[in-house]
Design a protein around this nucleic acid. Sequence first.
DNA 1: CGCCGCTGTGCAAGCGCTTACAGGTATACA
DNA 2: TGTATACCTGTAAGCGCTTGCACAGCGGCG
Lengths: 341, 341
Amino acid sequence: MQTVSIAEVAQRAGVSTATVSRALSGRGHVSAAAKDAVLRAAHDLGYVVSSNASSLASGRTRNVGVVLPFLDRWYFTSVLEGAQQALMRAGYDVTLYNVSGGPELRDRVFEEFLLRQRVDAVIAVSLELTPHEVSRLLALGKPLVGVGGPIPDVRTLAIDDVAVAHLATEHLIGLGHTRIGHLGGRPEFDSDFHLPVQRRQGYEAALAEAGIPLDPDLVANADFTVQGGYHAAKQLLGAHPRSRPTAIFAASDEMGMGAILAARDLGLSVPHDVSVAGIDDHDQADFFGLTTVAQFPREQGARAVDILLEQLEPQHDHAVAADIPLPFALVVRSSTARPRD
Amino acid sequence: MQTVSIAEVAQRAGVSTATVSRALSGRGHVSAAAKDAVLRAAHDLGYVVSSNASSLASGRTRNVGVVLPFLDRWYFTSVLEGAQQALMRAGYDVTLYNVSGGPELRDRVFEEFLLRQRVDAVIAVSLELTPHEVSRLLALGKPLVGVGGPIPDVRTLAIDDVAVAHLATEHLIGLGHTRIGHLGGRPEFDSDFHLPVQRRQGYEAALAEAGIPLDPDLVANADFTVQGGYHAAKQLLGAHPRSRPTAIFAASDEMGMGAILAARDLGLSVPHDVSVAGIDDHDQADFFGLTTVAQFPREQGARAVDILLEQLEPQHDHAVAADIPLPFALVVRSSTARPRD
DNA sequence: CGCCGCTGTGCAAGCGCTTACAGGTATACA
DNA sequence: TGTATACCTGTAAGCGCTTGCACAGCGGCG
């Protein structure tokens, strides 16, 4: 495809390249007639602006970088998908920086790739960044928003993990459970270390409010995977029926599914012998009948994009109320019920 | 970050911008002394080349587009991850085009985004492309490689699905099974319609070779998900013990997992009452003890990159033997055993 | 009626790099 | 010693766009 340049469009439309540029980008004044002619000429010739030339001249790339720690976890890909679609709608490309390839690749992302002036903005998903990395990003002088984990000095979108955990635990308490186990995240495991702690805080707070004493034996930590949840849940559920939890609140749906599988393998019935609740509303939660507190990662990605676009395109009328907390919602399915009395 | 230009580096190193460019890019001759000076100056100033200016001047973007149909399926994200890491190592960015956002977004990908001259090459993962889309891609005049599904007129990397299915089925036959069910893909469901058909062909061929007559009642189709596999497997396993399959070959691990769960829910023991084998070696296959034929999507992604780089950087010594078939391997776990006699 | 402000347009100067070309110096070889 | 053959370097012409500036035309307003 021999590329069509703006000059050819200009010639065909009988105007200057400046007018073509203005007509196509929508900035500056162009008469309706000229605009029509330009649009027609561009369409006829199959003209598509060269993003490099445009970026070089304008300083805008119409591209945003998304940095994430994993590509094989539901939450991350969901955020990515939400962000990607929103960006695409706005005419932006997304460049993916997956940081799971080991430390030397991670360094290159921050020291080299992000600095090539290829992006207008950066979305960082659930990354625990070093101060140096944060300073690198801020030094870019580009809009930056975090999703799913607090980044110091950076505007971040995250659900209220304490409240979410509180809600899930409260649901179990409301059903009449008093021996409620918790499958938490191992702090050292996840890339965002606040999340496991906060979810545990919500759990503990709900118990405290209900006057239920905290029993450390009912808490086990895992790595947020089905497998990890399975093994940890077996520990909890293997105890003597008298001390065994009648309900388990898992800090993620994947661990909740693990708990359901563990209960089955032990011959325990869910929810009659043990109720299970999770957090996320994972794709497969419905299949497992897992009661959960839904968060909406696709929407979180889209929201992050709104915030960025607001900064990148001020005229754009984004009705982004800055500080509306992110939504979450209890979704009750068949994995929770009153305890057997 | 007020951006450092090549001129500043040139000045600090006491050479011309041309020499800086040559020293940094490695094309053309530069004395060791000059190169050192340039490298030091660039490092001191924190200089990173502006990819836009570089691309505009050279026509090379150091960026490749990856187009995929889903972001929430293990196979796709694995290919993506493999490709991304390989590209990054070679200094390339990856721009993500996820085509799941509906037809109008899909059109824009092919009519607009990919034409902006932002990519040097395109990797298309398991996409069934319309002839028009293919022609659009070819018209780019850029290297193009497909992964995971045959694209007419395009070099494609895909395992031999017939052979893979044959191998899995043969394994079950070898254990002594004769009533072997198949969980196939619904042709209209998956984006690449050859795959379900080919896997079924491999299954049928293996049966035929063993002299086992094909029983249409032992075949059910689903959508490649755990859930779909679960429901389809229940149909197969709900039959009278005399006619029920003693083994199930699922065309994907996710459906295989569904089959295992279905068996359990029916009170059937895996592998004693029913063996299950899948294809993929999904992350969770090990947890489920699922016997499977592994394919290696990360490696497939990396291989696709090798092929592209070979074309983009001819001097690069890629030892890519063009037509080595993609590897696959039987991984036997605890979900398969001899049938109960 | 004169002035102002707004719209619409073109000119041309870059944006920050790469690279053809030309020239200059060293080495090899006759 | 002369000449061919490297190697090294700088000059400068773009790459294809955007946008500040200048200017022309036009209606509104005091």
